[in-house]
Amino acid sequence: MRAATGHGWQEWLRLLEMDGLALAAGRPAHGEIRAAVQRLMPALDDWWTQTVAVGYERARGLRAMHQNSRGEFQATAAKTFAAPAFAAFAAWADDALRRRWLDAPGLEVTKVNPGKNIRARWPDGALLDIRFTDKGPARCQVVVDTVKLTDAEAMAAAKAYWQSQFARLAAFLGA
């Protein structure tokens, strides 16, 4: 942190509160925190500005791990399979194949970008983005992002669920 921004975490917390972000004045919005970081260090790139803003929110109890600025949580699960990407993609994209390995009643596929990603929605409103990356002739990585989760418990449950489903997919693919 210090090497990239010139300040350590404790200094950033103090500087931001000296800039007017005292919690006693209410809950500052994420955009206000980012703006304060930019005022304090205009040359800081967007990635570090975001990192400092999120770090401030976490340090002050305004945001939990895996929570976005709207209060929603996200779970990401990834696995590399000993199978070609086209086979993993087909196992997800084809309804009949998907029903053979995925225990997901109520899941609605909303968009398919052949060979790249699949978007889907759970009945509770949580959204999925499933991405496929070729890792060679007989290897691929599948990443599932589950967004719009309500809390940390839902996030932990989603991660555990996808790990169990990845085991089922590996068995289905013979990987």
Rank of each mutant, 00 (worst) to 15 (best):
G6W: 05
L13G: 11
V142T: 04
G106N: 07
R121N: 04
D145Y: 03
R131C: 09
K159M: 10
L97E: 08
M1L: 09
G8P: 01
V112A: 01
R139P: 00
A167D: 15
A154C: 07
L62S: 06
T51E: 15
E72K: 12
R34H: 04
F132W: 01
L128M: 10
V109W: 02
D46A: 15
T5E: 02
L97A: 10
Q141R: 12
P123H: 02
A157N: 10
D103E: 06
A154W: 06
V54G: 01
Q67G: 06
Y56G: 03
R2P: 00
A167H: 04
G31D: 15
D94H: 03
A167N: 13
Q165R: 13
A96P: 02
E17N: 10
Y161M: 09
A36Q: 01
Q50R: 11
A120V: 10
A158E: 06
G71K: 10
R70Q: 14
A87C: 03
G115H: 08
F172H: 13
S69D: 13
F172K: 02
Q50P: 01
F86Q: 12
F172I: 01
G55K: 04
A78R: 13
G20H: 08
V143F: 00
Y161Q: 12
D145H: 08
A138C: 05
T110L: 05
A78P: 00
N113K: 11
E57V: 02
A29L: 15
E108A: 15
D134R: 14
A82V: 04
F132V: 01
H30M: 11
A88S: 12
Q67R: 09
R139D: 06
D94K: 00
R14I: 04
E17W: 03
K159G: 09
D46L: 07
Q67M: 10
E17Q: 14
K148H: 11
A104P: 08
N68V: 05
R34Y: 06
Q163F: 04
S164W: 00
G6V: 00
